[in-house]
Design a protein around this nucleic acid. Structure first.
Length: 577
RNA sequence: GCGCCCGUAGCUCAGUCGGAUAGAGCACCAGAUUCCUAAUCUGGGGGUCACAGGUUCGAAUCCUGUCGGGCGCGCCA
């Protein structure tokens, strides 16, 4: 709908060659905004104020010239200068009725932009280590990432979703040895379970489920363990377990364990409505030589040097505070080397825009990986990292204590069981990613008017019910026929609701381009409020045919927009509640 | 110490590229149901946008500083 105004304005400016020079710096589209106060019309442009300085004219004079050049248009009722130089546009009722028709015609496609080929987006999110079940913090990454993916798709971008599985490195050995020790316990062997091992109950489950062929009992694992340092203890245990089992058997145990956890994460996310196009294995970077390839490219760039036996990347050349090691003195490649290789690989697979949605603790990583990409010939600007801040749960007004280390944390599954998928998806994206989120379990659970999820869903269910009642009264409604009756929609409440509906495409655009799903959340709440307010004051099934049909069209259009919006959020749009 | 995020009503939060009189919900107060779910609606009180400067036609929004809160710093993963 905004395009109506921008077209009118563009046409008017075309008739003012004297402003052509200064206009070119100010895209018309960007000067138009919705008005807050209905007395200011439907849209306002501040273009005259922006042009005032470069054109060396007063804003109101410019506005007057522009208005003189606006041709009469059936979509437009009137235009006026207001305040310091705003141009206010009052659109005609016909324009709003036309938009309503568009909503009904386009249905699930309303608010979506045409698919484009570029830029190809790779959206990486969650990527939690496969060392245990997802907790509530990962849930936010999942909900946020999935919703951003939906938004980008709605905005027409080709987007693929990817989960990076950190299945390499020392933590996997720790996982392997943890499972082995639990297995030993199940065989009646006493263990002194190490502090640095994974202590959760799920480790026992894995130990009892996996194929244990070839695994043997060893009783001397705990003899003469180094004292004190828990890291040394676990290293020793890993080494002894590998020796006792042989690396083949130990690897099999480790691979089964991580795959079990990874599959569990995949199930958990799928139940949460979060799915991925690719599960990318960190191990594959090594087995397929991609780390070496990337390091070779990096070395060729001249951005790698040796010091103290280690290989360092000149991260400071790219704005990092210090250079970073890529290969340690002991020959082991660092996690950072994997990250560089992984992102290099993403670009080589043909993605133009890399979006990483990571936990807030990954800050610091951005400059480094961006620097790596830049050194390898790709612009660091094509890597966008959104850091998602932490989640605090509240129950009965009290913060729920959680520590990852002590294994005392609330899992995503527990949260989903407690509040349901809809509430969880909704609340997780109700704030911007860079804001801390206080998740109030009591509000999320309440089936009452203080729960915005139910408030919005109820609007959808209420509308669905109207059509049920219609059938019960043996009345029919036809969307094509109803389009001829829309001029019956004239009240203030109807205007407000139509205005809200027409904003939907703008909201999708805004939310997608800023990766800010909270705009959609707040919009849907406002839309539901406009609907409830109007509906409560207008019972219309027994109205004359034309009025009834027009109002049914308004209901149907509202239902379309609410359903489309909720679908993007991953929240269900129920027919009854 | 350095870096990042934040500070808006009693509480939880919106506030788009700098726009017109800073908005919602909850809570509080007063009302609405012979009705197409009251999981709803109508009305009311409630603000030094942390503080101080600066930029300009215009600042909650941009810049600088101060105060307050959260998070992160590794040849860990």
């Amino acid at each position: 709908m905004k395009t109506i105004v921008s077209q009118i304005l563009t046409n008017a400016l075309a008739g003012l060659p004297e402003l052509a020079d200064v206009v070119s710096d100010h895209p018309v589209e960007g000067t138009i905004e919705r008005t807050r106060d209905p007395s200011h019309g439907d849209f306002a442009s501040n273009i005259a104020m922006r042009l005032a300085k470069p054109a060396r004219m007063s804003p109101r004079d410019i506005a007057a010239k522009i208005i003189e050049n606006i041709a009469t248009n059936e979509q437009l009722d009137s235009v006026e200068i207001a305040g310091p130089g705003f141009i206010n546009f009052h659109l005609s009722a016909a324009a709003f009725h036309g938009e309503l028709g568009t909503i009904l015609d386009q249905g699930v496609c309303y608010g979506r932009q045409e698919a484009r080929d570029q830029p190809r987006v790779l959206l990486e999110f969650v990527s939690a280590n496969p060392t245990g079940p997802l907790h509530v913090g990962h849930g936010r990454l999942a909900a946020f990432g999935a919703t951003v993916g939906n938004l980008l798709e709605a905005a027409g971008y080709p987007v693929e979703r990817e989960y990076y599985v950190n299945d390499a490195g020392r933590q996997m050995d720790i996982l392997g040895v943890s499972v082995y020790l639990r297995w030993l316990e199940s065989q009646g062997t006493e263990t002194a379970f190490p502090e640095a091992g994974y202590r959760g109950d799920y480790i026992r489950d894995i130990a009892s489920e996996i194929d244990t062929g070839g695994i043997v009992v060893t009783s001397n694992l705990f003899d003469d363990l180094p004292e004190g340092d828990k890291e040394e203890v676990i290293e020793t245990l890993i080494a002894r377990a590998k020796e006792a089992l042989g690396s083949g058997v130990f690897n099999k145990l480790r691979q089964q364990s991580l795959e079990s956890i990874r599959a569990d994460i995949e199930d958990d996310l799928a139940e949460f409505g979060v799915t991925f196009d690719h599960w990318f294995s960190e191990q594959s970077l090594t087995t397929e030589g991609r780390i070496d390839d990337a390091l070779a490219v990096l070395e060729k760039s001249g951005m790698v040097y040796e010091k103290d036996g280690a290989k360092w990347f000149r991260a400071t050349e790219f704005g990092d505070e210090k250079d970073r090691v890529v290969v340690r003195a002991n020959g082991v490649k660092t996690y950072f080397a994997s990250d560089i290789a992984y992102h290099f690989d993403k670009r080589k697979r043909g993605f133009d825009l890399l979006i990483d949605i990571l936990g807030a603790d990954h800050h610091g990583y951005i400059t480094r990986v961006g620097g790596g990409l830049a050194a390898m010939g790709y612009s660091a600007k094509d890597l966008v990292v959104d850091l998602v801040q932490f989640v605090a749960l509240y129950r009965d007004g009290e913060k729920v204590a959680m520590t990852t280390r002590g294994g005392k944390f609330i899992t995503l599954r527990q949260l989903r069981d407690e509040v349901g998928n809809d509430a969880a998806r909704f609340f997780y994206v109700s704030r911007g990613h860079d804001q801390h989120l206080d998740f109030d379990l009591d509000v999320a659970k309440s089936e009452s008017n203080d729960n915005p999820v139910y408030y919005i869903q109820y609007a959808h269910a209420r509308i669905s019910n109207v059509f049920v009642k219609l059938a019960e009264k043996s009345l029919a409604w036809d969307k094509k026929f109803a389009r001829d009756t829309l001029s019956a929609l004239t009240s203030e409440g109807e205007k407000a609701l139509m205005t809200a509906l027409s904003r939907y495409p703008e909201i999708i655009d805004l939310a997608a381009n800023n990766r800010a799903p909270q705009h959609l959340v707040h919009y849907l709440r406002d839309l539901a409020a406009d609907f409830h307010s109007w509906y409560n004051n207008n019972k219309f099934i027994d109205d004359p045919d034309e009025v009834r049909d027009a109002r049914l069209a308004l209901c149907a259009a509202t239902r379309v927009v609410i359903a489309n919006g909720l679908t993007i959020l991953g929240v269900s749009a129920p027919e009854t509640m």
